[in-house]
Amino acid sequence: MLPTGELVQLRPLEPDDADHFWRWHKDPDVVRWMTGDYHLSLAQTRARFAERKRNSYSELSFVVETLADGTPIGGVRLDGATPETACAEVSLYLGRKDYWGRGYGTDALRTVCRYGFDVMRLHSIVLWVVPENDAAVRLYRKVGFREDGRQRDAFRGAGRWHDMILMTLLEGELT
Rank of each mutant, 00 (worst) to 15 (best):
L2K: 01
P3N: 06
R11W: 02
D17M: 07
H25Y: 13
P28A: 10
V30P: 01
W33V: 08
H39I: 09
S41I: 03
T45H: 12
A47S: 03
A50D: 06
E51S: 08
S56M: 06
S58I: 06
S61L: 12
F62I: 06
E65L: 04
L67A: 11
D69W: 04
G70F: 14
G74R: 03
V76S: 01
R77H: 11
R77D: 15
T82S: 12
A86V: 04
E89A: 06
L92I: 13
L94H: 03
R96V: 10
D98V: 02
W100I: 09
G105Y: 00
D107Y: 06
T111G: 13
R114Q: 07
Y115K: 08
G116C: 06
G116N: 12
G116K: 10
F117A: 08
R121Y: 14
R121A: 12
R121I: 05
L127I: 15
L127E: 15
N133Y: 05
N133S: 11
N133L: 08
A136Y: 00
R141I: 00
G144I: 11
R146Y: 08
E147S: 09
D148A: 10
Q151M: 09
A154D: 07
R156E: 10
W161Y: 15
W161V: 13
D163E: 06
I165C: 15
I165R: 13
T168N: 14
T168Q: 12
E171D: 07
